[in-house]
Design a protein around this nucleic acid. Sequence first.
DNA 1: CGCTTCATGTAAGCACCTCTTACATGATCT
DNA 2: AGATCATGTAAGAGGTGCTTACATGAAGCG
Lengths: 214, 214
Amino acid sequence: MSWSSKPGGEGPRGYHHGNLKEALVRAALELIAQKGPGGFTFAEAARVAGVSPAAPYRHFRDRDELMADVARRGFEAFEEALLRAWDNGRPDPVTALDRLGKAYLTFARMQSAYYAAMFEASVPLDASPEMRAAGDRAFGVLRTAAEAIAATLPVASRPPALMMALHIWSLAHGIAALFARGDGARRSLPMSPEDLLEAGVLVYLQGLGARTQD
Amino acid sequence: MSWSSKPGGEGPRGYHHGNLKEALVRAALELIAQKGPGGFTFAEAARVAGVSPAAPYRHFRDRDELMADVARRGFEAFEEALLRAWDNGRPDPVTALDRLGKAYLTFARMQSAYYAAMFEASVPLDASPEMRAAGDRAFGVLRTAAEAIAATLPVASRPPALMMALHIWSLAHGIAALFARGDGARRSLPMSPEDLLEAGVLVYLQGLGARTQD
DNA sequence: CGCTTCATGTAAGCACCTCTTACATGATCT
DNA sequence: AGATCATGTAAGAGGTGCTTACATGAAGCG
């Protein structure tokens, strides 16, 4: 394929945009960041991308499909961020889990457009198999971490790792949704969301009988 | 006040609706339940209520004000439900907290339109002082519960009650948002959201050194 | 080299929503 | 009964989104 405009640059283009699909995704992210999910329209994404309102229909069936694609990319980036933070549980699972929690909140705050598309856009879970799979992989990182922690616990008080993962995910998501989002519309806290999550996870691990270095 | 239509029934009405403000709130709840927050318009609420598109402007400045009113009523109903579940910590704080958690999730599931207006509609927190106050009162129930629990803990390991309340709120909200919403768009679980929350809270309390009856 | 075909984007019109202004109706007060 | 207020209607300007028919450019084929 040879396009009228240079692949990388934003130079003048001919009749064909050249990379409209990517441009639409970027536009959607911008708009979600500004006005929240649901706060942007197909036509507006087209305007931001510099094409006519009907052009996006060549690449996405409708708004939901664009949103699902954004969410899929979000889950993939999320998985990568979580994997990097977990770093195979080094140097020890509790320390790594703490990093994981911070990475979770950092992602929710810094990539809040992605996070909104993933969790607040009411995208049907079966909108696209790829999106669902990407989401499952992202949760898989949490599950892996839970399993590593569980392995360090006394067998007697060892809970199902899946349940641990769900608890940690829920706590992190709750904190992110209530306190760690970009918009100032959220309630203020006597501590940072990161500290709140860290403290909560530590208490939780202690409840499981884990030895935490305090 | 004597109105053209009978107060309870949906019978024929005259020129005046009789209770348009209430009818608009009900219409908004219906529409939110069907299509999510943000998925309804001022004009549509008017249509559902059976009046002209301009009529709502007599009662609400704009859509956001209607939404804020819905959220306020939601917080008030929420506070009432939580207060009833807490029941002043009877027969003991841990049992009452368990009831409180179940009531939280039940509200999120059964009154999901209210819950959506309260937490997912991106209503600015300062949209109305009444709404904010109602939200603070609802959280106050959680905080009261946390204080009662904290009072039973050994002083050495007694954490700030506010932090406990934030942890429990976040966990409950996370579970509600991820798993306990009406739409089937959410992920499935190997257990009920209620059980997940109960287990999480018990582990958390154990981590604080509370004696839980297990 | 010119025609065809396909992918891609445009144009234009319909539908709907928001919000305002002027007017109509009915209840209440004196 | 007449005045006044609260409430709803009618009509329309202005804006936005969605969709159908058409236009353009690139690549393949004789």
